[in-house]
Design a protein around this nucleic acid. Structure first.
Lengths: 142, 142
DNA sequence: GTAACACTTCAAGTATACTTGAAGTAAAAT
DNA sequence: ATTTTACTTCAAGTATACTTGAAGTGTTAC
């Protein structure tokens, strides 16, 4: 007879690992995003499975998926094992992520220009030199 | 004597241009993010200045700046003309945007892998071929 | 033994960013 | 002339994602 002990993590450890308050971890459990978390003497004992799931939650949430959408995704994945729906949700979300990425790159360039512009204004004012013109920064790459 | 007419835009036009509800445009005005919008017969008439400002609002908001932070930024920019503070806020925000971009790229790759994984599961099930293993997708680039 | 600590559950409260509702106005359409 | 459309103001309501508070429990420190 062989017994294998599974490595588990306390809620405080998980909280630190994923940089999420313990209250948020409990909240995700209330919503059903995390479930079947075993208790050791009444305390949550997260397994690697739960950490993987939490990683997915963070990844999807950080890319703009709502917790409700995450519930749907996990429902399709876990309960129904509905691959068509799972793929559909994933495909749609991936599309959105690509759009986000394109938009964020645009915004990053815009903000970079603005940063340079304001630093140049500051220098010009301090050194009594000619003020920069935003038109010179508008569609220019640095 | 010479009179120049400035091109203006109605709230509905601006709403369509920036893909924001008219209620949100009024809300931003309430918060002071947009101000001195002239009225023609009681109706808002946005000038190019306001559109530029609105573009900035969207850009910063979409990159995670709160409306409160935007108020601070505009206050430093418009009222105080405090270049040190303006530069500081912009610099800090730009840092955050770069982090976001790095994170989003990571998340995009992770989701891409997951999309492929689930499509391969679907194919395998449909064609009764061997199921894929997530470990083969984990840190692999496609 | 008892106090402190680290959790536990469950309900209620909060922050941010809108969104809706009510009541009114002014010009255009019928 | 009166209805419809497109706004207006101002106050109140809502959605999402937590966050806090109250009351309780079980191991650890003194």
């Amino acid at each position: 007879m062989e017994t294998t002990t599974v490595k588990t993590y306390s809620i405080t450890q998980v909280s630190k690992m994923y940089n999420l308050p313990t209250t948020t971890l409990r909240y995700y459990e209330d919503l059903g995003l995390l479930y079947d978390i075993p208790r050791l003497k009444g305390r949550r004992a997260y397994t690697q499975q739960h950490l993987n799931r939490l990683g997915a939650i963070c990844c999807f949430k950080d890319t703009g998926m709502t917790l409700k959408e995450l519930q749907e995704l996990f429902e399709a994945q876990d309960n129904d094992n509905d691959l068509t729906k799972t793929c559909e949700i994933l495909d749609n979300h991936y599309e959105r992520v690509l759009e986000q990425l394109a938009q964020l790159k645009k915004n990053e360039r815009h903000i970079k220009r603005k940063v340079r512009f304001y630093h140049d204004i500051k220098s010009a004012k301090e050194n009594h030199t000619e003020m920069p013109d935003w038109d010179d920064y508008r569609d220019r790459d640095f």
